[in-house]
Computed example of a mutant assay.
Amino acid sequence: MKHEAAMLHTHPTFKLAFIGGGNTSAVGYVHFCAAHMDHKFQVVAGAFCRNQENNKATGIHWGISSDRVYDDWKYMVEAEKDHIDAFVVLTPTPHHLEVLQYLFEKKLPVICEKAMVCGPKEIAALRPYYDPEKQFLAVTFNYSGYAMVRELKHLINSGKLGEIQKIHLEMPQEGFRRPPDIAGKTSQPQAWRLQDAEVPTICLDLGVHLHHLSSFLLNEEPSHTLAEFSNHSQYANLVDDVHMLVKYASGIKGSMWMSKTAIGHRNGLQVRIYGDIGSAKWLQLNPDELELNFNDGRREILDRAGQCDYAHQFRYNRMKPGHPTGFVEAFANLYSDIAQDLASFQQGQTSSNSYVFGLEHAADGLKLFAAAKRSTQTLGWESV
């Protein structure tokens, strides 16, 4: 806490500029709220939307000075690069490569919404522009920001579940079959989500989260995968349901399921992990609890008010237990970690925050789903 307080004393707030993320974005307002929640960032400029009416409306809604709301993102970068601590990339994933190449070429600090790019080929195209020793990058995989997910990682690392043997992750949604009704208006899928790229867009949208959580919890990358891609929606030739088996070099086995056509699931993100002593289950719809089972017959529900070894920290308890934390708070936890990393970067120090992930982690996830695509073609196990 002393280190964090010292950081805030030298940097009351970091100044951010958004590229994308306007009032028609799926994630823009979440980033805006999360960045401001702990008073470590302030969004001061943006090129929020190509539609200039929506662009200006976003600036007004967020209290951005009208002379710092830009029609063109490249013009904004040139105008603001000496006044901004980091640029936040929130455009649709197919546009990320162009934006990231431009920002990296100018050695500017970047916070990028996942998926970083559309596949391994775009990662390869990005590498010549990026020097991890000289440039700041944080890719926002936010689900590991949940306090009880971090508690689960602590339990695993402490050996409370024994030797891990199996992990199963799923993220079923219903949006292609039952588009969400938000404030009385049906929210149809965005156009870019209805076109598959080098890897299926569902893998960029949902799958990278499952990869992130598995790697975050296990400290290990999958080595092989066997996959099946399906189409169950009205959108022809689009992968909207994915089943994957995965293997790890350590001997751990696992599975991943993601879907846009699972009626009844708004967002059924779930993690189940099994060791030879115990098991744990976490559901995003009940984010403050972990269900634990042990081989002596004990069954426990661990929550933030319980005997947590990690999630009891003040930073994860903005409000006392009984008032559940949620998605935006998890995102804010990640933004606090990014602030710590950004402060270290500006002071010329090596990044040491284990909750902030960059290009290599993003690349690992995209390699996994490229291997899954090959598996659907060969009908066999593929090496990642």
Results as ranks from 00 to 15, higher is better:
264 G>H: 04
264 G>P: 02
265 H>I: 00
266 R>Q: 05
266 R>E: 04
267 N>S: 08
268 G>N: 07
268 G>T: 06
268 G>V: 07
268 G>K: 06
269 L>W: 02
270 Q>E: 12
270 Q>A: 08
271 V>E: 00
271 V>Y: 01
273 I>L: 13
273 I>R: 14
274 Y>A: 04
274 Y>W: 13
274 Y>C: 00
275 G>S: 09
276 D>P: 12
276 D>K: 09
277 I>F: 06
277 I>N: 10
278 G>E: 12
278 G>Q: 13
279 S>N: 06
279 S>V: 05
279 S>G: 12
279 S>K: 06
280 A>F: 05
280 A>S: 09
281 K>L: 15
282 W>L: 02
283 L>K: 05
284 Q>Y: 03
284 Q>W: 05
284 Q>F: 03
287 P>S: 13
287 P>Y: 05
288 D>H: 13
288 D>A: 09
288 D>F: 08
289 E>R: 15
290 L>N: 05
290 L>T: 07
291 E>I: 11
291 E>M: 14
291 E>G: 12
292 L>C: 06
292 L>T: 12
294 F>E: 11
296 D>I: 09
296 D>H: 14
297 G>N: 08
299 R>K: 02
299 R>M: 02
299 R>L: 02
300 E>D: 12
301 I>W: 06
301 I>F: 04
304 R>A: 05
304 R>P: 00
304 R>K: 14
304 R>Y: 07
305 A>N: 08
306 G>V: 14
308 C>Y: 05
308 C>M: 01
309 D>L: 09
309 D>Q: 15
310 Y>C: 05
310 Y>E: 12
310 Y>T: 04
310 Y>H: 13
311 A>K: 02
312 H>C: 12
312 H>N: 11
312 H>P: 07
312 H>K: 15
313 Q>K: 14
313 Q>L: 11
313 Q>E: 08
314 F>S: 13
314 F>E: 14
314 F>G: 10
314 F>T: 12
315 R>Q: 10
316 Y>V: 00
317 N>G: 09
317 N>R: 11
318 R>A: 15
318 R>S: 12
319 M>L: 11
320 K>R: 09
320 K>L: 10
322 G>F: 11
323 H>W: 05
323 H>K: 13
324 P>Y: 01
324 P>M: 01
325 T>E: 03
325 T>A: 07
325 T>H: 09
326 G>E: 07
327 F>M: 03
327 F>W: 03
327 F>A: 00
328 V>A: 05
328 V>L: 03
328 V>Q: 07
329 E>P: 03
330 A>L: 03
331 F>V: 04
331 F>N: 06
331 F>W: 02
332 A>I: 01
332 A>G: 02
332 A>N: 00
335 Y>T: 11
335 Y>Q: 08
336 S>G: 14
336 S>R: 11
336 S>H: 05
336 S>Q: 12
337 D>I: 04
337 D>E: 07
338 I>L: 09
339 A>H: 00
339 A>Q: 01
339 A>L: 00
339 A>K: 00
340 Q>R: 01
340 Q>K: 01
341 D>N: 14
342 L>D: 06
342 L>G: 10
343 A>K: 02
344 S>A: 15
344 S>R: 14
344 S>N: 15
345 F>T: 04
